[in-house]
């Protein structure tokens, strides 16, 4: 039986539990084919911005696991910086090899919205990049407002969300901040649930259509003087939400309004001229 596996087909699988712990596994022959048997590690690299050097790296020991597979564990600590992490196989004295995705068992993340989180909130979602490699999407937020549902009608959009790590006090506000708008902000009054974590607010379409066109990023300020908390949807298994959680556009008075998730899964409202 031939066991040669070309470098490009080494596929990394993983299981994630609800604490965020990731157990990676790699078919042993995939590792052997390209690396020395001893001292293999996984290298996690925070993807640097274009033309910047890579700075943040973590390495994990690969240990023999069941039926000849190699395993590595990434515990909830260390907390990973927010961004996208690429994963490589690293051996002594050899070049690193970027890994392809195998099965990623993320079922423990699917109902993640139902659990209250500690802050700072650290989220990890393994995913396959567009060009077919294994990567991990991470978020790290001092406090978090999780978008739970968005209801769009002709006249208004109502957003239901839940705060983690902070609660809504008297005087708390929702703030829409115009991107690149030199501090242009619209303030809305949220309605809080009894426990002070859940809240919802309604954006009136006429009012927003009459304001400046552009992208309004959505924040909540839980109490006066508290830092702004970005509204986002991070607590499930979907790493890239923009094309999956899609809300309808509404046209009012020559303007087209649409709530959407950004490439970072943050909630924004787009207002542009209707065509």
């Amino acid at each position: 039986m031939r066991t040669t596996v070309s470098a490009v087909t080494a596929r990394l699988g993983c299981v994630v539990d609800d604490s965020g712990r990731i157990v990676f596994d790699l078919p042993a022959e995939a590792a052997r084919a390209t690396q020395e048997a001893e001292g293999q590690r996984l290298l996690l690299r925070l993807r640097p911005k274009k033309d910047e050097p890579e700075k943040v790296l973590h390495t994990l020991a690969l240990e023999p696991g069941d039926d000849g597979r190699l395993c590595a564990v990434l515990d909830p600590e260390p907390v990973l910086a927010e961004g996208r992490w690429d994963v490589y196989l690293l051996g002594p004295g050899t070049e690193r090899q970027r890994l392809r995705p195998g099965l990623r068992d993320l079922r423990a993340l699917v109902d993640g919205q139902l659990r209250d989180r500690r802050t700072p909130l650290a989220v990890r979602i393994p995913y396959a990049t567009k060009d077919g490699y294994f990567a991990i999407r991470t978020w790290l937020r001092p406090a978090h407002a999780e978008v739970e549902r968005v209801d769009v009608s002709d006249g208004s959009t109502t957003v239901g969300a839940r705060l983690h790590g902070v609660s809504l006090a008297a005087g708390g506000t929702v703030r829409l901040r115009l991107r690149g708008g030199g501090g242009t902000v619209r303030e809305l009054k949220p309605l809080a649930s009894d426990d002070g974590h859940g809240f919802f607010f309604t954006v009136d379409h006429d009012g927003l259509a009459a304001a400046r066109h552009g992208v309004w990023d959505v924040f909540v300020q839980p109490s006066p003087d508290a830092p702004l908390v970005r509204l986002a949807r991070l607590l499930d298994d979907v790493a890239d939400r923009k094309e999956v959680f899609v809300y309808p556009a509404v046209t009012v008075e020559g303007a087209c309004l649409r709530p959407y998730f950004t490439v970072d899964n943050d909630l924004s409202l787009e207002v542009r001229k209707a065509v």
Binding site: M1, V5, S6, T9, R11
Partner: peptide
């Protein structure tokens, strides 16, 4: 370049 499904090297 590559199939969508990993093919057994055999």
């Amino acid at each position: 370049e590559l199939p969508n499904f990993a093919l057994d090297p055999r």
